[in-house]
Design a protein around this nucleic acid. Sequence first.
DNA 1: TAAGTGATCTCT
DNA 2: GAGATCACTTAA
Length: 183
Amino acid sequence: MILNKKFFQRPVKTVAEDLLGKYLVRRFADGRTLAEMVTEVEIYDGPEDRASHACQIGTDKRRRNNKGKTKRTAPMFEAGGIFYIYLCYGMYQMLNIVVGEKDYPAAILIRATRETKGPGRLTRKFAIDKSLNTKSALRGTGLWFEDRKEELAPQKIVRAPRTGVDYAGEIWKNKKYKFFLKT
DNA sequence: TAAGTGATCTCT
DNA sequence: GAGATCACTTAA
């Protein structure tokens, strides 16, 4: 079953927990498909999250990545169910799924599958680039998520602070917004 | 542990 | 248009 709009238009933490154990599925241009189980995600939740690209408060001149709604971050402000993809460190595409209601900026970064660790390596293996930015995850064309009804013990979900967000200030950098499956 | 890499954003 | 920044990876 392809995850639908209802799945993504719920509180971000709920979606993140439920996304673990689901499958990321890619159909390549040549018709082949690739499916791997999602095992690690991070959430970026709302206009007050200072680690989020879409942060709208506490604008600090030294913190140039937190600038609210810009051309780059506009997808995060759309209704849940589309992809937000951007280039980081000049060479790695980051894959996010936008979550929640329209005008509430929130997204979940897909960091790893059972088979592929690391957000940059994952997008490279899945041939994901900006051509998929703002595209819907609900249609089952190109890239989407599937529930394959695999059992998952709730106690296997672990939480930790996010990676690479030291700039976000004490409160936000320490929030346990990374969710992953204990191996 | 450090360097590579280029789009994005701010300020001139 | 210049300069800084960055939700990472790799090789040593």
